[in-house]
Structure formats: C-alpha cells, structure tokens
Simulated assay, not measured.
Amino acid sequence: MRKGGVIFDFNGTLFWDSEYQEKSWDEYLAAHHIFLTEQQKRDYIHGRNGKDTLEILFKRPFSDEEVHQYSEEKEVLYRNECLKHKMELAPGALDLLDYLRANDVPMAIATASGKSNVDFFIDQFNLLDYFAEEHIVYNDGTVKGKPHPDLFDRAVERLGVGKTGSVIFEDSHSGVQAALNCQVGHVVIVNSTNSDYADFDLPIITHFDGFDRRLLKN
C-alpha cells in the first residue's frame, strides 16, 4: 500500500464556481420563497449533500425520489449559469495535476455534487485524463454528507492508500471539518472566495502553486 494520496474537493476547490453556485441558489431559493442569510447559506448549503440541505431548507423529510427531483431543479440552473462563462480549473490546478500524474501519486475527487453534475464536470474538464472514474467519489445517496468524513473515507479506500501520508484540499467550512474528521496527514484550505478561516489552524492557499509539494514525499 502506498503511504498516501491526494484528494480534492471539487466545487470551490478545483473549480472556482462559487459565484455560479450563489446565483443559481439565489434563483432557486427565491422560486421557493426561502430567504437565507450568508451565514445560513454557509451552514446549510455549502459542502453539504443534497438530502441534508433540502431537509433543512424545507423542514421535512425527503424521499430519495424527491431529493433527485428538487436537487436537479437547482442543478439545471447551476449548469446553465456555468455555461455562460469560460469554465477553467483553479489557478495552478493543471500544473499540480500534471505533476501528480507524472509522479504516479494516487489522486481522487470527493465531492458533495450528485451524478448529473459530476458527469457535466467530467465532460467539461476532461477529468478522466487525470482521474480514474472510480476515483471520482460523489454523493450517490449512500454516504453521509460533510462534515461527516464518509466521502473522504471512501476516496481513501478506493485509492488504496494510507491516511497518514494523504493530503485533502477543501474550501467549504463543512468540507474542511470533514477532512479533519477523516484524520489524514494534511488538510490544505483553498481560499477561492476570500473567506475567513480563523476557526482552523491550517495552511491556506489562493493558488495551487502555493502548495508545498514536499508534503507528497512518501
């Protein structure tokens, strides 16, 4: 077993899409007459899986069928918003991905996004050039959402690596907490929105060139 690998959250980490997410969420919430503060958005939406978010917003249990229906309504708005813009991976991300691939460092994505968005990202960014499909872990309804570590645990398991030498990149507060709960060797915050991470004593980068690659020496 290799000592460790690299696991990326996607939205807000590998793909800086917070503006598109905000616009689509605002449109979606207004259509349902739900109005949230910025703090509530951070707590209830960002980094969480669809079922958790919907049950908080609508204050009732959701069936799997309802989760798919309500989530897809919002994600159509989101994907349409993305397509209005030039879609690129985060600054420095491609250079790091090329480095990881060239050095045979196992890497995975662990995202709270559902399958329809993951398929969209795979197509838009040619993600399979870097990630094996089974190493793109997403919200399939069978794992607890962040801040629970389940998505990251599954990514570590699929990579077949140890936790102590692994690195997780995250941006959302719930995602950072999930990464800490996974108990990997290193958690790196990607600050794509000029957010306040004073609650965490962790390295923060605003460009993937700022990542200390010496942490990858296994």
Rank of each mutant, 00 (worst) to 15 (best):
K84V: 07
Q39G: 03
D52Q: 15
P106N: 14
N191H: 08
E73Y: 04
K59N: 13
I56V: 15
F121P: 02
P91Y: 02
N194A: 11
V176T: 11
G50M: 09
H207P: 00
G145L: 13
Y99C: 00
H32P: 06
L127N: 01
L14T: 03
D95M: 05
L14P: 03
H135Y: 11
L215N: 08
Q40I: 08
L127A: 01
V143H: 13
V188N: 01
Q183W: 04
S172G: 09
R214E: 14
L54V: 12
Y99R: 06
L83K: 15
S63E: 09
K217L: 12
A102D: 14
Y78S: 04
S113L: 10
A102Q: 14
E157Q: 11
L216A: 05
Y20Q: 15
Y197V: 05
L215A: 08
N49E: 13
K86T: 13
F8I: 03
T193F: 05
T164A: 14
H68Y: 15
K59V: 07
I136K: 07
V184L: 08
D153Q: 07
A110V: 08
M87F: 09
A90D: 01
H173A: 08
K144P: 03
N139C: 14
L36C: 05
I34Q: 02
S195N: 12
Y197E: 10
M1K: 07
L29W: 04
V76F: 06
E134N: 14
T37I: 10
H207M: 07
Q69E: 15
F8P: 11
V143K: 14
F200W: 03
H33Q: 12
Q124W: 04
I204A: 02
F121W: 05
A179D: 07
F169E: 04
G160E: 02
F125N: 03
F152Y: 15
P61V: 00
P106I: 15
G162N: 06
A108R: 08
R60W: 10
I7W: 00
F62V: 08
D209M: 06
S172P: 04
C82L: 15
S166E: 06
D64H: 08
D119M: 06
K3T: 02
I45M: 09
H207W: 06
R60A: 01
D153L: 15
V143A: 12
S166A: 10
E65M: 11
Y78R: 08
V176K: 02
L97W: 00
D153G: 00
S116R: 14
T13H: 05
V188T: 04
L97M: 06
V137G: 02
A178C: 10
V176A: 07
H46V: 11
R213D: 01
R101Q: 13
G185W: 09
I7T: 05
S63Q: 09
F58D: 09
F10Y: 14
Q183V: 02
H173M: 11
D52Y: 13
D17I: 10
F35K: 14
A112P: 01
E27I: 12
D196H: 11
V156R: 01
G50C: 12
I34V: 13
P203C: 04
C82D: 05
K217C: 02
L94Q: 07
K41L: 07
D153Y: 14
N181P: 10
A102N: 12
